[in-house]
Amino acid sequence: MTIYSFWIFDRHCECIYHKDFKRPQRVLRPPTLASTTGDTKENAQQQQKRVVSSGGPPKGTGPLTVDDEAKLVFGVVFSLRNMVTKLAGDRESFFAFKTSKYKLHFFETQTNLRFVMVTDVRVEGIRPILEQIYAGLYVEYVVKNPLSPPEHPGGEGVNNELFSLGLDRFLTPLEIFE
């Protein structure tokens, strides 16, 4: 069993944290001519725009930046959640959906923080894991961190050392992480 990726979206629908696991397919886009000629900031931005060349969900036809992928993932969970609410009432939400290649798990707090984990299809019932990431890691290391701002435009303050390390330490020993 494997975790492919993990995402957090805030109430403003912005991706504030993202981490890839076991994604050898994801490669850095080779530097373009423009980015090799000096402007380091631009270069860095180019470097950050990693692309998916093949495999991994969602399977695109062309290169997909992390930003694009975040938008896609969010679009899917947001529509699905809204549909479920419309069909089944306010207090209903969805837990997961799966395709032949992957499974997407979803947990939303009352504050509209959305936690998404994409795994292989065999992974079952990891909602408690997402809840623990929220209560044990996100609240303790992001929310209570005086140096993190109250909200996280552009992910500011989420990707800190304690949270990242905590997440690694929490997920790595799990059965679903192999």
Binding site: E140, Y141, K144, N145, P146, L147, S148, N160, E161, L162, F163
Partner: peptide, 13 residues
Amino acid sequence: YISVPKDMPSLDC
């Protein structure tokens, strides 16, 4: 609960 950011390594709250 502090994780000191990399741009202020010497900060001590």
